[in-house]
């Protein structure tokens, strides 16, 4: 067969269906005019297409139509149209592990037990494909990791705290994750809405980022009065931009004394600090670091206050 005939014959099926473009149809018609083999091929395909008219389509048995409609009505009555929440649950069940997946797993295990040799051969046959997939995934992971490392090295030079070692062209701002600190302090620190001026002012002074020390600064409170119930922690986290200190908690006066918790132990809390670097060209980058800090609470025993 000539190379030209081979390329033409791929289109002969479309040619007899008249689904080719005008240009393609003309080109093939021209070729058919000079090629006897391709003409024979077209004729045989046309005959095959014509033969399909003798196909006897299946017809349903007598009385099937009414029977089917009755069946369908019965099924619909038994299984009403799903509501939106049912669809949601069904899709969740499908994702979480549908019976079909369970069925497939059972089938797989069953086949593995009954035909171990056949399945081993099947796995062995597919092993190159698995190896290729694994290699592609590994390469992607390595490339991504390499990219991340070079990016971090570029943005944050290696060494101790990156916040302190920020390149001079960066201005550093320190922000704290308020929710986390608040959640950790809520158990021991409450403030009374009726006496908002009573508070303990605590400041974290940072000598460096990994060694946080606490310092008790101020106490403006008066002795608590009985029956003054506290009501949760007030919004207390502030940002002190004037120095390197971080004001992070204002504790209430009455509630800690009335409750019987042990304040002699330091409070261990994870404090998330977000660093944001702003460059002079207005581009910024940020990352978050968690610091485990033991916050020593002031001695707030009732006897001492009184």
């Amino acid at each position: 067969m000539k190379p030209q005939c081979r390329s033409v014959q791929r289109y002969l099926s479309d040619y007899i269906d008249c689904t080719l473009s005008r240009g393609q149809t003309v080109a093939i018609a021209q070729h058919l005019g000079i090629c006897r083999g391709c003409r024979k091929e077209v004729k045989s395909l046309r005959n095959t297409k014509a033969l399909l008219h003798y196909y006897v389509p299946p017809t349903p048995p007598d009385g099937y139509d009414s029977l089917f409609w009755q069946q369908l009505q019965r099924v619909i009555e038994e299984r009403p149209r799903p509501t939106w929440w049912r669809r949601l649950v069904e899709s969740f069940l499908f994702v979480a592990g549908s019976p079909r997946i369970f069925d497939r797993c059972c089938f797989f295990l069953n086949s593995l037990i009954r035909h171990p040799v056949q399945w081993s051969w099947r796995w062995a046959r597919l092993s190159p494909a698995y190896a290729v997939i694994f290699l592609v995934m590994l390469t992607t992971l390595l490339v991504y990791q390499g990219f991340q490392t070079s990016r971090n090295e570029r943005l944050y030079p290696p060494g101790a705290p990156q916040f302190l070692n920020a390149p001079p062209s960066y201005h550093a701002h320190v922000e704290m994750d308020r929710n986390l600190v608040r959640d950790n302090l809520k158990k021991i620190a409450t403030i009374s809405p009726s006496s908002p001026n009573r508070f303990v002012h605590k400041t974290l002074r940072q000598s460096n980022l990994t060694d946080l020390t606490t310092e008790y600064l101020d106490w403006n409170g008066n002795p608590p009065t009985s029956g003054n119930d506290g009501e949760g922690l007030k919004e207390i986290i502030t940002h002190d931009s004037s120095s390197d200190s971080l004001v992070f908690a204002q504790l209430s006066t009455p509630e800690p004394y009335l409750s019987r918790e042990d304040y002699s132990q330091p409070l261990r809390a994870v404090i998330n600090i977000s660093y944001r670097f702003e460059r002079k060209d207005n581009r910024s980058s940020s990352f978050t670091s968690g610091v485990l800090a033991d916050v020593q609470l002031p001695d707030l025993s009732l006897e001492k206050i009184l």
């Binding site: 045989s44 395909l45 005959n47 095959t48 399909l52």
Partner: peptide
């Protein structure tokens, strides 16, 4: 169509 042609060769001819 090619498979059908093979299977119905005697009629196609």
């Amino acid at each position: 169509r090619k498979k059908l042609r093979e299977r119905l060769k005697s009629y196609v001819e």
